Computed example of a mutant assay.
Amino acid sequence: MITRFGLLTRKKGLSPEAFNAHWAQSHGPMAARFPGLRAYMQHAVTDKQQFGISHARGADWDLDGFSELHFDDRQAMLDAVSGEIFAPTLVDEGAFLEDVRLVACEKHKVVPMEFDGGPFIKRMTLLKRLPGVSPEQFRHEWLETHANFVRQWPNVLGYHQNIVVDRYHGSRTESAPYDAVPVDGIVEFWFRDKAAAAELYATDIVTETQEHAKVFLDTITPYFVETRTIV
């Protein structure tokens, strides 16, 4: 399975309300027709505060939404944006997007989210590795050491790691250079509410985890989001 995230910035002059209405009502049904699409979610940004994170925020990012599309593999993902069905979707982007950068990811469910019917909030976070830290080092520190820290956190409803394996900007089929899409991973974190999240971030284990982040992360850029399931 491959997960493609779109990192979306709304068109200048467009209100958040108009952006979200167009994304959900016009663009969503178009993208839902992609061949080979297994799932499609839209994550609308509701809060851009750093909220408990001691790291610097990434200067490259000021997002309004994340699209999330699932395909069986990378070839299926590329095929979906190579046919006739994709063409009107690309044209439609000009109506509500100023910029879209894309990352193809491997999803790792460190703490699987189980939707128990109770209230929850979701936060998505962009990670950029430190200069001098190789992609291989980043992968080891995040998928192994850091994940083991998070497994010890109390009252976490879910924690998924999406490690970037390819990047796109402009072209949807030709890889972009790292500097064009400077992100190495995307975190998905679920909490019961913001009060529970704030209480969690005051614990010693979270402090210890954030100390470990200094070993391999340059910037951490979180967003609280509201999710719409399209497919």
Rank of each mutant, 00 (worst) to 15 (best):
I2G: 06
I2A: 04
K12W: 02
E17F: 10
E17Q: 13
N20A: 15
A24N: 08
S26D: 11
S26Y: 14
G28A: 13
A31H: 08
F34W: 03
A39R: 04
Y40Q: 08
M41T: 03
Q42S: 10
T46L: 09
Q50A: 11
A56I: 12
R57T: 10
A59S: 12
A59E: 08
W61C: 10
W61T: 11
W61Y: 13
H70K: 01
H70M: 01
Q75M: 05
Q75R: 07
A76D: 04
M77A: 06
M77E: 09
A87G: 03
A87F: 00
P88E: 00
L90S: 11
F96L: 07
L97K: 04
E98A: 13
V100L: 02
L102Q: 02
K109H: 03
K109E: 12
P112E: 01
D116P: 11
D116T: 00
K122H: 05
M124Y: 02
T125Y: 03
T125A: 08
L127T: 08
L130A: 10
V133L: 07
S134A: 07
P135R: 10
E136K: 12
F138R: 15
W142P: 15
L143K: 04
H146F: 08
A147F: 05
F149G: 06
F149V: 03
V150A: 13
V150Q: 09
P154Y: 01
G158S: 02
Q161C: 06
Y168Q: 08
G170F: 00
S171C: 03
A176S: 14
P177F: 00
Y178W: 13
Y178M: 13
G185F: 06
R192Q: 13
K194Y: 13
A197M: 15
E199G: 14
D204T: 11
T207W: 08
F224V: 12
E226F: 09
T229K: 10
T229Q: 12
